[in-house]
């Protein structure tokens, strides 16, 4: 899932300083699950904003709405009538939702209400950790299902580097060394010898380094054209 964290209130107040009426727009997807921008967070932020602004003597009218998925033009279409009446939208969706929203409403200012952090997993109450960087060519088959791109601080393919000690990464004693995890898991599976082979240099063109990516599936295009 995409993990996000709400931006600090002061930063958001700064964005909205010149507006009188805004739509705080939540998303029912990942940001609801990671408690950053779902219906509940929209409610809390909405009242915080209204309160802060009335204290300043410059009241802000806050419209609240949470839609199923902000990264989907169809759902955004459904709120066009609400958007029409506000000065701006504060989106609490991930970076993708925010951009989809801006694309759907080209004449409205859309402000980001969250910092989109990473693709990760919920480990514990209030704890999330990164798991994937969408490198475009997954190597989990070779690494025991543990991602060296996202989880090794140096994204190396032939680790662990010389900084790995007691299973922890040199960068942070609270972070597991991905390569220690890979090694131990493959050892447990009786496959550790596979690590003797050198993993070849990666083709990063499938990653962001190849420029913005786009996926076109002709099979689906054809089907829909029928």
């Amino acid at each position: 899932m995409i993990i996000a964290e709400r931006k600090p209130i002061d930063e958001i107040l700064g964005f909205l300083s010149k507006h009188q009426k805004v739509l705080v727009l939540g998303c029912g997807g990942c940001v609801t699950v990671c408690l950053a921008g779902g219906e509940k967070e929209v409610g809390i932020l909405g009242s915080e904003l209204a309160m802060a602004r009335s204290k300043e003597g410059r009241p802000l009218e806050v419209v609240q709405k949470t839609i199923e998925r902000q990264c989907d033009f169809e759902y955004l279409e459904g709120i066009r009538h609400i958007v029409k009446d506000v000065d701006a939208i504060l989106s609490l969706a991930c970076g993708i939702g925010i951009q989809t929203c801006a694309e759907a409403f080209p004449d409205k200012i859309v402000w980001p209400g969250v910092n989109t952090k990473f693709l990760g997993v919920n480990l514990n109450v209030g704890v999330w950790a990164e798991r994937c960087q969408a490198c475009g060519q997954c190597v989990l088959d070779k690494t025991g299902g543990i991602c060296p791109v996202a989880r090794c601080s140096k994204s190396i393919f032939n680790g662990p580097c010389g900084g790995s000690q007691n299973g922890k990464c040199e960068v942070d004693p609270d972070t597991d060394c991905a390569w220690a995890l890979i090694h131990d898991r493959l050892a447990r599976l009786g496959e550790v010898d596979s690590l003797r082979e050198i993993m070849a240099i990666k083709d990063w063109s499938f990653s962001r380094d190849g420029g913005p990516r786009k996926l076109v599936r002709e099979d689906l295009e054809l089907e829909s054209g029928k």
């Binding site: 601080s153 140096k154 190396i156 393919f157 032939n158 050198i198 993993m199 240099i201 990666k202 990063w204």
Partner: peptide, 26 residues
């Protein structure tokens, strides 16, 4: 490989790690 930039005097830098040390040897 190189020490992570976190330890240096430009901790806000982007690192590269296009290849790792073993791949560089290759």
């Amino acid at each position: 490989s190189g020490d992570h930039q976190k330890f240096g005097n430009h901790p806000t830098a982007k690192n590269v790690f296009d290849v790792d040390s073993i791949q560089l040897i290759q």
